[in-house]
């Protein structure tokens, strides 16, 4: 088990990223077949899966990294992109396009990422292949009392120039913040 000061990535159990890519691809393909190519349903299922994963993943993240409460949304996004994505997917997305009030920004995923590497999707504008990530982010942030809107705006699988997620802070759930933090 890791001690304080240990390198986080060194202590992580690793698997081949292709195995992960293939497993995720298999699930999405089957969902498309099951729902007869109604891609909105597929997106919703992926989002639900992600949400369930996110509410548990946050404990894994906090226990392995020892991150503390962030003082601003900018800091939160920084921790998510520099640590969160690195620890779980071994990628580091870029952050850009901050709004003037500092409450929303875009996360640009690097190409390729472990979910959609070597994937081709059927010609449609409705499927967001990596929708599971939106669910994961929303679920994880809900558990630390942040209400956010997360959606995809661009996807390279659809022919866009980059894969971009828009993240917007709605509100901080002050009532649910645990006692004992100042």
């Amino acid at each position: 088990m890791s001690k304080k000061g240990d390198d986080i990535w060194k202590n992580v159990d690793k698997i081949n990223s292709e195995l992960f890519t293939l497993t995720y691809g298999s699930i999405v393909a089957q969902l498309c077949r099951d729902f007869n190519h109604n891609y909105h349903e597929v997106n919703n299922q992926l989002d639900q899966m992600g949400y369930n994963i996110g509410i548990r993943l946050i404990e894994e993240f906090l226990s392995r990294t020892g991150a503390q409460r962030c003082q601003s949304f900018k800091e939160t996004v920084e921790v998510i992109t520099k640590l969160g994505f690195r620890v779980f997917l071994n990628i580091q997305p870029a952050v850009e396009n901050w709004s003037s009030d500092g409450r929303s920004c875009s996360i640009v995923l690097p190409e390729p990422n472990p979910l959609n590497e070597f994937v081709e999707i059927p010609p449609t504008k409705d499927l967001w292949y990596c929708q599971i990530l939106c669910g994961i982010l929303r679920g994880a942030l809900q558990m630390i009392q942040l209400d956010v809107d997360v959606n995809f705006v661009k996807d390279t699988l659809k022919g866009d120039d980059k894969t971009e997620i828009r993240l917007k802070l709605n509100k901080i759930l002050k009532d649910e913040v645990p006692a004992g933090e100042d």
């Binding site: 992580v12 159990d13 690793k14 698997i15 081949n16 990223s17 195995l19 992960f20 497993t23 995720y24 699930i27 969902l31 099951d34 729902f35 349903e41 299922q45 639900q48 899966m49 369930n52 994963i53 548990r56 993943l57 894994e60 620890v87 779980f88 997917l89 071994n90 472990p114």
Partner: peptide
């Protein structure tokens, strides 16, 4: 390239519940 084994584990944890929900919906 590698990813965290926990990522796959969480994904697999959702397999059976998703299958049940899809079946139920259909």
């Amino acid at each position: 390239s590698y990813v965290n084994a926990a990522s796959l584990q969480f994904l697999l944890q959702e397999l059976v519940p998703t299958s049940i929900r899809v079946s139920h919906k259909l």
